[in-house]
């Protein structure tokens, strides 16, 4: 039982990181832009949010807790949006190849974040800082109520914000004119254009907002999951690719991202907890193999949806294609 609880406690924060990444990417892909720069964007968000809060706390005598959190969120969002803006300009305005641009953005984001991360923060930690504490704060009272309290209410606010965000995005996509227009653009930009919808504006906005949301995943990773330590490891990149895989897994539906991300978290940490749970010992060198399971599940989903050929489960029809108005 304890193992299971520990497993869930590990899986849900892990899932939250990729949920942010995936939610942002769903919005982006719904507009027909396949942004493979998610890992780079998460790096940018994580670095900017962490650095801004850190510098603020260290330069003010009595830092304000609320301002500190808002500043971190704001900077993470803006920095990640900046990544999205680069991507948008290249692929929408200049019509550069989306895959190449995305991959370049990943390398770029990683490089920028790691360079400045080391330069400014020099491996310092913020474990004593206000912002870390706030991100870590569990829901009072409820989180103390036994197993349920621990596993359901025992997380920082970003976990719940992700769920709320997924529900909001679902509502916007399915039940509002904005969502209808956005989906139309991802499916058939020429038709949307003829209907008087500004394709370029929607694509820019969706890609930048999507990048901003993905960037929050990076911030959550640094300030909560990684316990307020800026570490120049490749971990964020791995999470970013997992977020891209999660988008496919959800079949481009935000609500599926909620359970999908937690499932990915469980599967990712399978190697550490499952053997103990069933009383089975696994040699260390197998763990990397087991961490592959989320990707295998994604491939399985791809195969199943391809076989079922249900149109609603397919990617947006114009995903990855630049839109030229004059082309006939």
């Amino acid at each position: 039982m304890d193992t299971l609880i520990a497993w869930i406690l590990r899986a849900i924060p892990f899932g939250t990181i990729i949920m942010y990444g995936a939610l942002g990417e769903i919005i982006t892909e719904k507009s027909g832009n396949l942004n493979l720069g998610v890992p780079g964007i998460m790096y940018l968000g994580g670095f900017a949010g962490f650095a801004s809060a850190y510098l603020y706390e260290n330069s003010v005598a009595e830092p304000n807790m609320v301002f500190c959190v808002v500043l971190a969120l704001f900077c993470a969002f803006v920095a990640a949006m900046f990544g999205g803006l680069i991507y948008s300009f290249l692929t929408i305005s200049l019509r550069a190849n989306q895959n190449v641009t995305g991959l370049a953005l990943t390398t770029f984001g990683m490089g920028v974040a790691n360079f400045f991360g080391v330069f400014i923060l020099d491996g310092r930690t913020a474990t004593q800082s206000l912002v870390y504490k706030t991100f870590q704060t569990k829901i009072p009272v409820l989180s103390g109520m036994g197993v349920i309290g621990q596993t359901v209410f025992g997380y920082g606010f970003m976990v719940y914000a992700a769920i709320v965000l997924a529900i909001i995005l679902h509502h916007v996509l399915s039940h509002t004119r904005t969502g209808l227009n956005l989906r139309a653009i991802g499916e058939n930009p020429a038709t949307a254009d003829a209907a008087g919808i500004s394709v370029t504006r929607y694509k820019y906005l969706a890609t930048c907002l999507g990048a901003g949301i993905s960037g929050l995943g990076g911030l959550y990773y640094v300030l909560d999951y990684n316990q307020g330590i800026w570490a120049t490891t490749g971990q964020i990149e791995a999470l970013g690719w997992l977020a891209v895989a999660l988008v496919i897994f959800t079949t481009w539906k935000p609500l599926n991202a909620i359970w999908g991300s937690y499932l990915f978290g469980m599967l990712y940490w399978l190697y550490q907890f499952l053997p103990t749970l069933i009383g089975f010992s696994v040699p260390g060198y197998i763990t990397d193999l087991i961490q592959m399971v989320p990707y295998l599940v994604t491939i399985a989903v791809l195969i199943i949806t391809s076989l079922r050929k249900k149109r609603e489960d397919q990617p947006p029809a114009s995903l990855g294609l630049a839109y030229f108005r004059e082309e006939r």
């Binding site: 004119r177 209808l180 058939n188 038709t191 149109r311």
Partner: peptide, 23 residues
Amino acid sequence: FKLIDVFTAAENIALVLDKHEKY
């Protein structure tokens, strides 16, 4: 045809509506 394949007939009609009209 200027239609979105994965939309229903009604959604396709809605797509061209005036922005100020309620959805």
